[in-house]
């Protein structure tokens, strides 16, 4: 049994565990949630345990404990949506050390989502009531073990306040899959950046400090590849597919490269720096594009 499961009792008040714990791994996750499985498999998924509590008034609370291979992957799943009521359990890391929102448990509408260590946890009441919310919070507190540090790649996110772009910390998402990226910022239905489990990637938006500028925000994609060769080939692939009219030849042997491109949504900049690829979309003008290249 998952050690986390041992943290929670069979009975909480009037609520009782009502079914055997369901064990789900990559071989049967599609049976459990159909195409939704692609989300979890897009991260480094190990297995899932599912249990239910029921109450005398026939309400049900579903508990899903996703054990991921790393805490980065659990963080990534939570980071897809930072909205909701922030819930602070046993916080041990100072918020000064964090770039993303500090609360790693978020509640709304009867659903508590949280990331703790390498676990991503969903606790859902089928009917939201005061009693159900109280039990959800008790379960959350029992299951919440620690706040892990953020994925390393977040430390590479550039701050650009000095050139008028303010990062939206509640729009930071860590991912490894183009499907996850597309669900946040649609790029292409093809895997143009060769994302896979060996890649750590993050996307975040920045709002302009200048009023009435269009586009109002820029979007950064930053990916760390296992080596320079894969990073260079991935950027080359992206430019060939996304910017097919471009005539610039990308030398994949070079360890650094940067360029800006005029596209429909304004300007786009790409940068290769050893095994990191940065791309910024929606830049309003060429001057801003040149400034941004110097910051990423």
């Amino acid at each position: 049994m998952n050690t986390l499961l041992q943290s929670i009792p069979e009975t909480i008040g009037d609520w009782q565990q009502c079914k055997e714990v369901q064990q789900i791994d990559s071989s049967n996750i599609f049976d459990y949630m159909n195409g939704g499985a692609e989300l979890y498999l897009g991260y480094r998924f190990n297995h899932l345990e599912v249990l239910e509590y029921s109450s005398e008034d026939k309400n049900t609370i579903l508990v899903e404990i996703y054990q991921m291979e790393t805490s980065d992957d659990a963080f990534g799943l939570l980071s897809i949506d930072w909205s909701g009521e922030q819930v602070m359990f046993n916080q041990t890391i100072s918020s000064d050390e964090l770039l993303a929102p500090e609360a790693r448990a978020l509640y709304g509408g009867g659903l508590l989502r949280m990331a703790t260590g390498k676990y991503y946890i969903r606790i859902l009441a089928f009917r939201e009531t005061t009693d159900a919310k109280s039990v959800i919070m008790q379960l959350g507190k029992l299951l919440y073990k620690d706040l892990s540090s953020e994925p390393e790649i977040l430390r590479q996110i550039p701050l650009m306040d000095d050139i008028g772009w303010i990062m939206n910390s509640d729009k930071i998402t860590f991912f490894r899959s183009y499907m996850v990226l597309n669900s946040l910022f649609y790029l292409s239905h093809q895997n143009l950046l060769n994302l896979d489990h060996s890649v750590s990637a993050v996307t975040v938006s920045y709002n302009s400090q200048v009023k009435n500028v269009k586009p109002r925000y820029i979007q950064l994609l930053l990916a760390e590849y296992p080596n320079q060769k894969k990073a260079a080939e991935s950027l080359k692939h992206f430019i060939e597919e996304f910017l097919p009219e471009n005539t610039i030849m990308i030398d994949t042997v070079k360890s650094s490269y940067s360029h800006n491109f005029k596209v429909e949504e304004g300007w786009l900049v790409c940068k290769l720096d050893n095994n990191f690829v940065s791309i910024v979309f929606n830049i309003p003008d060429q001057l801003s594009a040149k400034q941004i290249i110097n910051h990423i």
Binding site: L187, S188, H189, Q190, L192, F242, E264, E265, F281
Partner: peptide, 13 residues
């Protein structure tokens, strides 16, 4: 050659 549908196709309509 795969014909990739991209963000730009949507922006261009």
């Amino acid at each position: 050659k795969v014909n990739a549908i991209t963000r730009r196709d949507f922006i261009r309509g």
